[in-house]
Design a protein around this nucleic acid. Structure first.
Lengths: 342, 342
DNA sequence: CTTCCTCTTGGGAGCGCTCCCGGGAGCGCT
DNA sequence: AGCGCTCCCGGGAGCGCTCCCAAGAGGAAG
């Protein structure tokens, strides 16, 4: 027994059109009538049918979150939980709804993507976890569906995106270690197929250069964001004697800590560590990690805001939004230790 | 320049209705015509409009995943990442789409819930992370929207749900410790406001009873699924001298390990541990955790299957699906140690 | 050849909304 | 009094599909 605009109109003694105006709170409805209609809506608990609205207006009110995560481990990272929370919260607040498209294989991506953009299911798309040369991104760029990317996209075309200041954050981390007096500083990288990986490397090398330190290639190994990959990467470079290491993610840093413990090296006395992300694990690890904190949930929320602006036509030009990061100094970098010495 | 059924019909020399029959692959279309229509669809890349379909058929093809997670930390647990992956994968396979409703405050829940069930946005709902006396669950039970719960729901009414065998798994964990010869066995519980918390406690006490061991209340403390809560709970019971402890989640067990390390107790030599979940962290922790592995992604997939059956009318009666758990023996329970002794 | 089915096919109606247009009421001005 | 303007409001048309019914084609049976 679903109610329609017509029903509400009848109950309130007005037409379907007027009820529609009240529901979409457009003006040109007299206060008296508006009040009366709103009372009926309230009393009956009327909720308009989204399919009909969508068909008539050609807008669905749905935002699609697309995660082309071929790499299973990616979604296991707590990063995505926080990101989704930020996105969901902003979407809810805007009165929109969020649909999740988690592709797990290339075939699934191929099969499902057309429906996402061509069925009228979503008004716009938020794309994250892209990699270099991502085919999904290329299709989005060619198509006409509004979209915003989380994480700097690897395309020449101007696209809207929000990202953390990976370069600046990594530079700060390098400078932090440098200022503490370390000279043999290693680097455990995120995948160079991701822009976060590339940018954090860039910031790191910038920081070292600013300090006048040469970057020994023997002190670098790259991982895949996973705990295990951090563990293995640390094993790889340990023999070359790093005094300090910048690890490109907290999760990897936890793995690096495990490796160091196994290798009998004390942190920060033997090897100091700074990582990136600011996840809860950086607080509870032993020792607590000095880390470059990025605003994860906020970047999700920001992506929603940008997308909504694009949809409303409020902005036309691609929007780029780089969120600041913040160095949080804890135990792993040896700041207290060294600070006392200096 | 969107195509419609009518357009495809014109191109293929048939009517709108016939194209509709082909698209929804109903029978009563001659093979020749079907072939011809399919070619046109293929060639043009036609995708039907979901809003129109939804309006006409009163089915949206969307499943709603509702997470009433007031507790922020809940969604931080890697459990949810895996669960969502399982749900998403099964939803994709069925040609449906998944919408995510992540409520973060009671007010948001109150405001958004009616739209979820009354706007025609979703055909059915998957509800998870419920707690005792969950108002959302109560409303779902009263309403007419098909739904399935993940995790045993706390209601008297018969509802469809899928759950892991928490009782059986916890019993097995208790028996494992008992068989290894431990007698003072402690319990770090999940919140008793969740059915997983209650059931794991029940299974644990059953196991102890079967062994003829009395459960010392001084050896019990409950947490909240978080690492930190496991850490604190272990601190609480340590002074009472447990020889072994069953921890109700891997994440909490990682916290418990941290506490034990701090307290100078070796695992498993001084205190043995068995936990629950089978998350990756149980493999990479030091020592590796013996744990009761539950099929997380599969329970999500199963929930989707059950919901789809409910929607298709294939089943009418509420369906209950309890998935088996499996004890994975690693280092933390001291099995190798004790096993050698025996 | 007629009758009665079955199998295909086409088209009307209608899902519940938005959008547009037109008309009436009310006001101020000439 | 007449005109023009603004502000409200109602109703027609139409969004692109599904569902139902009717009608034609063709075959089997009498």
């Amino acid at each position: 027994m679903r109610l329609t605009l017509e029903d509400i109109g009848r109950l309130a003694g007005v037409s379907r059109s007027t009820v529609s105006r009240v529901v979409n709170d457009q003006n040109s409805v007299s206060p008296v009538v508006r009040q009366r209609v709103q009372e009926v809506i309230e009393r009956t608990g009327f909720i308009p049918n989204v399919a009909a609205r969508s068909l008539a207006s050609n807008r669905s009110g749905v935002l699609g979150l697309v995660i082309p995560s071929r790499v299973h481990s990616l979604f296991a990272d707590p990063y995505y939980g926080r990101l989704i929370r930020g996105i969901s919260s902003a979407t809810n607040e805007a009165g929109a709804t969020l649909s999740l498209f988690l592709f797990q294989t290339e075939a699934e991506e191929e099969r499902l993507y057309p429906r996402v953009v061509a069925s009228g299911l979503v008004d716009g798309v938020i794309l994250t976890a892209t990699r270099m040369g991502d085919p999904l991104l290329a299709r989005l760029v060619e198509g006409s569906m509004p979209f915003v990317v989380i994480g700097r996209p690897d395309v020449s075309a101007p696209v809207s995106y929000v990202d953390a200041d990976n370069v600046g954050g990594a530079r700060q981390a390098a400078l932090h270690l440098c200022n503490l007096g370390y000279r043999r500083i290693g680097f455990l990288g995120a995948p160079m197929s991701t822009s976060a990986g590339v940018d954090r490397l860039e910031g790191f090398t910038e920081g070292l250069a600013a300090c006048g330190i040469a970057f020994d290639p023997g002190l670098r190994a790259d991982g895949s964001f996973s705990e295990q990959s951090g563990y293995e990467a640390m094993h790889k470079i340990f023999a070359n004697g790093p005094e300090a290491v910048f690890v490109a993610s907290d999760t990897m840093a936890v793995g690096a800590l495990r490796a160091l413990r196994e290798l009998g090296a004390k942190v920060p006395q033997d090897v100091a560590l700074v990582s990136f992300d600011g996840l809860p694990s950086s607080e509870t690890s032993i020792p607590a990690l000095s880390t470059v904190k990025q605003p994860i949930a906020e970047s999700g929320a920001r992506a929603v805001e940008v997308l909504l602006k694009l949809l409303s036509g409020e902005v036309i030009e691609p929007v780029v939004d780089i969120l600041p990061t913040q160095l949080v100094v804890r135990d792993s970098s040896g700041a207290t230790l060294r600070g006392a010495e200096v």
